[in-house]
Computed example of a mutant assay.
Amino acid sequence: MKRLILLLPAAGLIWYLWPGSVGIWNIGNFLGIGLCVFLLLWGGFAPLLKRRAETAGHLKTYRTGARILSGLLTAGFLWAGILTVQMILAANRTPPKSIPAIVLGSQVRGDEPSLDLWARIGAAERYLKENPKAMCVASGGQGEGENRSEAEVIREKLVGRGISADRILLEDRSESTEENIRYSKELLEKHSLGSHAAIVTDEYHQLRASWLAKRQGLTPYAVSAESPRNILSAMYTRELLALTATLAWG
């Protein structure tokens, strides 16, 4: 049983280190690495700490602290589970035929899309080819380390895959998911494209995108890109934090 308890955080540590092999380091995998290391240390040293507490006459204090720690970890994992179920449901909300798509930007490295942006471009391509009358908003500004805006790169790659440039509207001002949605909505209104939108983004990102879209008066549906498995741990955990922050502070 003890080996199993140690095996789980050890496997988790490998999972959270994996994104680093492709240069992905963010608060998501830092938090996951820290948690797994803590659990490994706690699993390995808890018996020793308990014996020392008992010898020093502080066993009651030790047990109280252990219960509090266990409760916090349980609450955290339960909260993550609740959000994960909601993320899965949001990622599977199939859009009606031919409604406009909003492709949310992600990091561009120089002139080339990052792994998750490639996934979103691929999902947008499939949707637009399956719905030849649908328009598309390529959304995303130019950030640090990007030679061009994310929107321009999205449009270029879609055109290179056979999507007519006439079907792609450019939103190149945004610097966050909230701005992606808000500025894209302005384009939909300007071109009389209605208030229904197929949001093209990673599965884990669909829930927060749908919340933000509803705040802007849009009716969102999901065109979900399959997140690259080698970066999923970092991006998923970061999204759990972003969802919690959105609920807490709006």
Rank of each mutant, 00 (worst) to 15 (best):
K97R: 15
L13M: 08
E239C: 07
L247H: 09
E125C: 06
V137F: 05
E156F: 03
G20L: 15
L59D: 04
N180Q: 06
P100S: 04
H196M: 14
D111R: 13
L207P: 10
L6E: 11
V103A: 04
L41E: 02
A198V: 00
A101M: 08
L89S: 05
A124R: 02
A165N: 12
S233E: 02
I168C: 04
E226R: 00
T61D: 09
A46C: 12
T177I: 01
Y183A: 07
K129T: 05
K50D: 10
L48H: 07
L232N: 01
D166H: 09
L72C: 15
V22T: 12
G250R: 05
G20C: 14
L40H: 08
P9C: 03
A197I: 10
G194P: 07
A80Y: 02
S164M: 03
T237W: 11
L69D: 08
T94W: 00
L241E: 06
L169G: 04
I163T: 02
R51W: 10
E54Y: 12
R215E: 15
H196L: 08
P113L: 02
R148N: 14
Y236A: 14
P19S: 03
S227F: 00
N26K: 00
W79F: 14
L218F: 06
A138H: 07
W79C: 13
A66L: 14
S184D: 11
G145V: 04
E54A: 15
H205I: 00
P132H: 08
D111H: 13
A80T: 00
A124N: 09
V85S: 11
G57W: 10
N180C: 09
I102L: 15
K214S: 14
T201D: 02
L78Q: 03
L39D: 09
G43V: 01
S210L: 06
I99M: 06
A222L: 07
L72W: 11
G81C: 04
R63S: 11
K133S: 14
E125F: 02
R208H: 01
A234C: 11
K133I: 00
R238I: 06
I163E: 08
I88R: 02
R51C: 09
A91C: 11
V137A: 08
P47N: 09
L49E: 04
A80G: 13
Q216A: 15
G143R: 01
Q216W: 01
I102D: 05
I231R: 02
L59T: 01
K185N: 07
S184K: 08
L89K: 05
H58N: 12
C136L: 10
P95D: 04
S174F: 07
Q142S: 10
S224R: 01
E112D: 12
G28K: 01
E178D: 12
F38S: 09
D172E: 14
Y204Q: 03
A11V: 10
K129P: 02
R126T: 12
V85Q: 06
S224P: 13
S184N: 10
L243C: 11
E144Q: 12
D172L: 10
